[in-house]
Design a protein around this nucleic acid. Structure first.
Length: 268
DNA sequence: AACTAAGCCAACCGCATCCTG
DNA sequence: GCAGGATGCGGTTGGCTTAGT
């Protein structure tokens, strides 16, 4: 209501982008960097809305995009990340260098969804389809799942132990699990979750997400930060806002992997 | 060869969130 | 603290391509 449109629609092109438009956009961003999408079209001489330019750049023109088919490993990683994050495509994309949220979303809807169905797995709940009803009746604390971020994290220390998120998810190191239920294609990503009471109820004396915890063996980012979400209001650690990371653009690494997207403002 | 259905993906839309004055 | 603008995100759509008949 009363919200101003993002652009003057009467004077903007819509639909497929032409080669010339692409070239203009690329040239402009190379010269001036990303950002200020609203004024970019005019400055670049494009009859497009800023959002459209942003989308075109992010989803199609960025030079670090992989393009091409998804690998089996990427498939499995997407499935696992989706089981953890749900339809947070941008977060999932952040863990897949060279892939965009739109691309992953499309790929999910066209390929993976079907693939899971054919395996008898509900793509929404990631449970066996026959099991869905039964699963719904299981009490929360009977559901044991584990997230292991163990060896994928190049910076992680040995012996990294449980981490409890502010969302009440306990992340358990892999070594505590004796019998992994699945044969992992990505052994560094064990995404089982343990649903447990929210953080305040279970951690009376510890503040597991304080990044400057004195523990020398634990990299204690909050769950939000561990997902690479910067400056989130959900951040419960002190790292989120002004991370000491040497890479300002990357934010926290998830599984020790910095966000795979380059910061093209650096071109300036 | 022509038609139809299904698949695929780029792009749009509207809402949510963030940022700034 | 608030309002309004800017940006980001996820859902959806539309059009092109490919496969099937």
């Amino acid at each position: 209501m009363g919200r101003s449109p993002c652009c003057e629609k009467a004077h903007t092109n819509k639909g497929a982008w032409t080669k010339e438009e692409d070239d203009r956009l690329i040239a402009y961003i190379r010269a001036h960097g990303e950002g200020c999408w609203r004024s970019l079209p005019k400055a670049a001489g494009l009859l497009r809305c800023g959002k459209s330019c942003r989308l075109r750049w992010i989803n199609y023109l960025r030079p670090d995009l992989k393009r091409g088919n998804f690998t089996e490993e990427e498939d499995e990683l997407i499935i696992k990340l989706h089981s953890l994050l749900g339809n947070k495509w941008s977060l999932i994309a952040g863990r897949l260098p060279g892939r965009t949220d739109n691309e992953i979303k499309n790929y999910w809807n066209t390929h993976i969804r079907r693939k899971l169905m054919s395996r008898g797995i509900d793509p929404t709940t990631h449970r066996p389809i026959n099991d869905s009803a039964a699963a719904a009746s299981v009490s929360q604390d009977q559901i044991i799942k584990t997230i292991s971020f163990s060896n994928a994290n190049a910076n992680s220390k040995e012996g990294e132990k449980n981490v409890t998120s502010s969302a009440g998810i306990v992340i358990i190191s892999k070594e505590e699990e004796n019998s992994p239920p699945l044969k992992e294609r990505c052994p560094d990503l064990n995404l089982e979750l343990r649903i447990s009471p929210p953080y305040p109820y279970q951690q009376q004396n510890q503040e597991p997400f304080k990044s400057n915890s004195s523990s020398s063996t634990t990299s204690t980012l909050c769950f939000v930060c561990s997902l690479g979400i910067q400056n989130s209001k959900d951040c419960s650690c002190s790292n989120g806002v002004s991370s000491g990371s040497s890479n300002n653009s990357g934010g926290h690494g998830f599984l020790g992997i910095k966000a795979g997207v380059l910061d093209y403002r650096a071109w300036r």
